[in-house]
Nucleic acid binder design. Structure first.
Lengths: 225, 225, 225, 225
DNA sequence: AATGAATGAGCCTTCATTCAT
DNA sequence: GATGAATGAAGGCTCATTCAT
C-alpha cells in the first residue's frame, strides 16, 4: 500500500525478508570461510545469523541452495567488476597492452582479495551442482570472448587464437587465485597485480618468431653448439 | 631383524603389511577420485581394498591419516619427477630457456595428467591439516629455490628475484592444474605443455627495459613516445 | 446479541467466522484427500483456504482439531443420510427386505462415493483420539439399533440378535468402504450397490434350519440328509 | 566351516545377522502396533530391539524398508495360511460349502487375530509404496482365482462371476478385519468365524431366481402386490 | 482479527570409529 | 591379525505452533 511514496521500495514485509536473506548469506560466508563446507553446518549458519534453524529453512530450501546463492553472488560480482574493467580498458590505446591488462587483472585481484578462504570453499572445496558448473563455464567463455576482443590475441604459429585467449583468462584467474589464497608469507597484493599483468602481457607480446616453443627440440641448435 | 646384512629386505610379515598399506592407499585413491572426499567413506575404501573396516584401522589411525598419506605420496612423486626434470634441465645450455622450462613443465603435466580428479580432491577439496600445509609450503619453497638456480631469474626493476621465482613456480603449478583438471572441452595435453612453457619463458625473457609494467600509467608515456 | 427474535441469524461477524471455518474445513478435506494425513500440513491447509497460518490457528487450536471436525462432519452426514434412508425404508413393507436394505446400502454408498481418498484418511490413516473413537462406536451402536428395528433381525440358532445386527452393519460399512476405496479396476458403483445389498439380504434371509454353519463338522450330516 | 554338520545352518555370522533382523522386525511390530506408523520412530524401534540406531540401519536402508518387510511377512503368512486352508478345503465335498468356506474364513481369522493393531498400521495407516500395493492387488487376485475354483461361484443373473468372486474375497477380508480390529466390546472370535462364514455361504447359496436385487425399483411391484 | 516470520523439538539418516570374537 | 557388527554423535531438514506487528 505505498500509494504515494517516492521511493518504490519493497513493502516492509519483503524488505525484511530480503534483509534476513542477506543476513543468512553473510553468516554463511563467514561460517564457510572459517570452517569449510562440510563443517559449515546449517545450524552453525543459523546461529551465526542469529536465527533459528527453522527460519533459515524458510529462506533456503537446503544447504546447497545457500552455497549456490553465495557462488552466484560472487560470480555476478566478479563478472560486473571484470566487465567494468573491460569497458574502461577499451578506452585505452590498443597498443598499451600493459595498461589494458592491468585494468582487468586489478579487477580480478579485487574480487579475490576480499575473502580468499571463502573463495576457496566456494570454487574449489564445495560440491557444486552441474548446472552451476555450466554457468561457471559459460562465464569463462564470455571472459575468453572479451579477452579476444580486448587484447591483441592472434594466432601465433602452432597456437590457435582460442587457445591463446583461454590461456590468458585461465592464467589470470588461477594465478591471482593461488597467489592470494595461498596462505602464509602472502605476496603483497601490489606485487600480485604487477606480476600477473607482466605474465599476461609478456605472453602476448613475445615475438613469435624469436620465441617458438612449439616443439621440445626446437632448441636443438643451441644444444648442438 | 635383518638376518643378513646383504639382504636388507623386510621380513615377510612387514612386507605383507607394506603391501596391505599400499592396497589401502590405492583403494583410497580410486574411491576419492570417484566419489570425492566427503563421499569417500572409510567403509567404501575398505571394501575397495578388499579388507574389513577393522583391518583398515589397523593400518591407519583415522580417515585423515589416509588422506595425508595419499597427499604425501603425491607430493613425493611430484617432487621426484620435477627434481629429475631439474637435473636433466641443468644439462641443457643456460640460454635455452625454452627447453629447460619445457622439461619442468612436462614433469608437472605428467604428475597432474595421471588422475586429475584425485588431484582435485587431494589438493583442493579435502580439508588438510595445518601440518600438511606447512609441508606443502616447504615443498614449494624448495621448488622456488630450484627455479632460481635453474632459470635465469634475476631482479627486474621493481621485482625482487624471490617474487619472480615464486610467480614462475605458481604459474606452472596452477596453470597446469587448472588447464588439465578443468573438465569439458579439455585442452589437449600437448597444447598445455606448449602454452604453459610459453607463458613462463616469455615472462622470464622479456626485455625488462622495454616492458616495465611497474606502474599503471607509466606505459602511457612510452606509448606517446 | 440476536437483535430481533425473528431473525435468529448470527451476527455478520459470526456468520463470517462460520464461513471461514467452513473454508478451512473444505481446504483441509482437499488437502488430506490429495496428500494424506502426514503430508497434509497445516500450512498447506491454510494456503489452500487462502488464509494465513496464523488465522487458521484462530479457528482451530491444533491440527488434530481440524481432523476431528472433519470426521465429525462426515459422521453427521453419514448418520443423516442413513437415518433418512431408514425412515424411508420403514415405509416399505417389512417383507421387502431387498428394497429396505437397498435403501440403506445406497445411503452408505453415496456417503463413501463422494471422496474415497478423504474417507480413507479420516477413518483409517489418521490417528484419531480415543474420544472420537468412542463417538464412532456410539454411532455404530445406534446403527445397530436401527438395523434391529428395520430389518427382521432375529436370533438364529446359536447367533444372538445383537451379533446378527452388528454383522449386518459392519458388513455394509466395511464392504462398501473397501469396494469403493480400493483403487484400480474399481468396481462399478452400481455393482457395489447391488452386491452389497445381496450379501446382506441373503445373510438375513437364509433358512436357519437348512443352513447352520455353527460347527465345522455338523454340516456334513445335514448335507447327507 | 560347518564341514560335517548335519544341519546345514547358516554360518554363525549370517545366523546372527538373521536373528538381529528378526529382532528388529519384532521390535518394529511392537512399536508400530503401539504407536502407529508416524510415531513409530526408528529410534524407538532400535531401542525396543535393544540396538543402537546405527545398527538398525545396517539391516534396513530406511524406515520404509522395515515397514515393507513387515507387510511382506504378513502377506506371506496370510497367503500361506489361506493357501493351506484352500488345499484342505478341496478335499471336502463340493456341496459342503459351509465347511469349505469355514476353513478359509478360519485361516483369515487366525491371520488377523494375532495383532489387530499392527495389521491396522500395516494395511491401512502406513503409506505403502506403489510396488507393494501392486503385490497386494496381485495377492487378492490370486485369492479371487482360488475362490472361483473352490466355491461354486457362478454367474447369477446380472452379476458376473468375477464380481461375485471378488465380493466373496473382499467380504471375508474386510469383515474379519473390521470385526476383529474394531476395538472395545470385541466380538468373540468364534462368533466372528461363524458369522463371516454364514455371510459368505448364504451370499453364494441363495436361489438367484427368488432373490434378485438387481434393480432398485423391482421391489416396487412386490410392494404393490 | 489477520499476518507470516520465527521457533525448536524431533525426525531420519550417515559414517568414523571401536571392540568382542 | 582379521573381521564386521555395533555404536552414537551429529547433520540436514520438517512442521506444528507461537507471537510481534
Amino acid at each position: 500500500m505505498p500509494s504515494s511514496s517516492l521511493s518504490p521500495r519493497k513493502s516492509p514485509v519483503q524488505a525484511r525478508a530480503v534483509e534476513t536473506r542477506r543476513r543468512i548469506l553473510d553468516a554463511a560466508a563467514r561460517v564457510f570461510s572459517r570452517h569449510g563446507y562440510a563443517a559449515g553446518t546449517t545450524n552453525r549458519i543459523a546461529a551465526e545469523a542469529g536465527l533459528s534453524i527453522g527460519s533459515l529453512y524458510q529462506y533456503f530450501p537446503n544447504k546447497d541452495a545457500i552455497l549456490v546463492a553465495l557462488v552466484r553472488t560472487h560470480m555476478d560480482d566478479g563478472a560486473a567488476a571484470v566487465g567494468a574493467a573491460a569497458v574502461e580498458a577499451r578506452h585505452l590505446p590498443l597498443d598499451d597492452l600493459t595498461s589494458r591488462a592491468r585494468l582487468v587483472v586489478d579487477a580480478f585481484v579485487d574480487v579475490h582479495a576480499g575473502d580468499p578462504a571463502l573463495h576457496q570453499v566456494l570454487f574449489e572445496q564445495a560440491p557444486r551442482p552441474p548446472e552451476l558448473l555450466a554457468e561457471l563455464r559459460a562465464l569463462e567463455d564470455a571472459a575468453v570472448a572479451v579477452a579476444v576482443e580486448l587484447l591483441p590475441v592472434a594466432d601465433r604459429g602452432t597456437t590457435a587464437r582460442a587457445t591463446t585467449a583461454r590461456v590468458v583468462v585461465t592464467t589470470i584467474e588461477s594465478l591471482v587465485h593461488r597467489l592470494i589464497a595461498t596462505t602464509e608469507p602472502a605476496m603483497p597484493v601490489d606485487d600480485v597485480r604487477r606480476e600477473v599483468t607482466a605474465v599476461v602481457v609478456r605472453y602476448l607480446s613475445a615475438d613469435p618468431g624469436a620465441l617458438d616453443p612449439s616443439s621440445r627440440r626446437s632448441s636443438k641448435r643451441s644444444v648442438e653448439k
